[in-house]
Design a protein around this nucleic acid. Sequence first.
DNA 1: AATGGTCGCAACCGCCGCTCA
DNA 2: GTGAGCGGCGGTTGCGACCAT
Length: 262
Amino acid sequence: MSSVNLSGSSEEESELRRGPWTFEEDSLLTHYITSHGEGRWNVLAKSSGLKRTGKSCRLRWLNYLKPDIKRGNLTPQEQLAILELHSKWGNRWSKIAAELPGRTDNEIKNYWRTRVQKQARQLKIDCNSKRFLETLKHFWMPRLVEKMGQTSSQSQSSSSLSSTTNTQNSETPGLLTVPQQVKYTPYQATNENPSSSHCSSDSMKKQSEKECYHVDIDNFNVEDFMSGDILMPDCQVEAIDWINSEDAATYWNMDELWELKK
DNA sequence: AATGGTCGCAACCGCCGCTCA
DNA sequence: GTGAGCGGCGGTTGCGACCAT
C-alpha cells in the first residue's frame, strides 16, 4: 500500500512533491505542528497544504525539524554507545536512537553504514562477524574510551547523553558489554615494536588472539560512562603502534580517533 | 580548470505490525 | 475474524559536496 494512493486520485498523486524540502515547506510543517501537534500524518499532510505524503512529513519532522534534534558530529560517547548498543541489538536503529537523545535512527544508521561498515570493508572483515566485533572490542572501543577520558577532562559538559538509562538489557547479552572498571592499554605513542607495525587483517587477528589490548570490557556499562561516573583509570601502554605503521591509515582512518595521537 | 571518484546525508521505498470499524 | 488505514522501521537510493588527478 502506498500512502500516495490514499488520495485515490492520480491527479492528486501527480501533484505530490518529492525530493528535498524547501524552506517554505519546512516552515509550513513546523508551524502546523506547533499549532496542532504531531501525529495523524496523513491528515496533517492534507490539512497543512503541503503537497507531501504523510510519511514524508513525518520523516522530515522527526529527522530534521524537531526542535531537540542534535546536529553535528557524534561525540565519542555517542559513538561508543552506538557500538555497544549495536552489539546488543543489531540493526535496531530506532531502539538505539532512543538511547541517544537528539539523535535520529536515520543518523545512527548512516553513521554505521558510512563509518563503521567502511572500516569493516577496509579491514576485509564481515561487519557482522564475531571477528569484527572483536576488532571493535579490542581496538576501536578502547580508543573511544580513551578519547572520552580526554574530552571529559577538558569539559565536564561533554556528556550530552541521556540520563534515562535503559541499563542492563538482558534481552540480548552483548558481546561488548562494558566495564565498571576499565582496564585497558591503548596504543603506544612511541613505536617500540616496529617489527609488528604491519597492520593487516591477519596481524590484527593475531593481535586480538594474543589479547595484546587488555580491554576488560566484560563488565563495562556504557551508561556509567555516559553519566561521567567512570573516568579513565590506568592507561598503560602495551601495544603495536597501529597508528604509525605505514598502512594504518588505510585500515583505521577514523579521523577523530587519530587526533588523540597528535 | 576540468573531470572522475568517493563520501555523507537526506529522502524514499517496501514491508510489517497495530488499531479500529 | 478480517481487511483497510496508518505509523514505524530498516534498507536503499539519489545527489550535492568534496577531493584527487
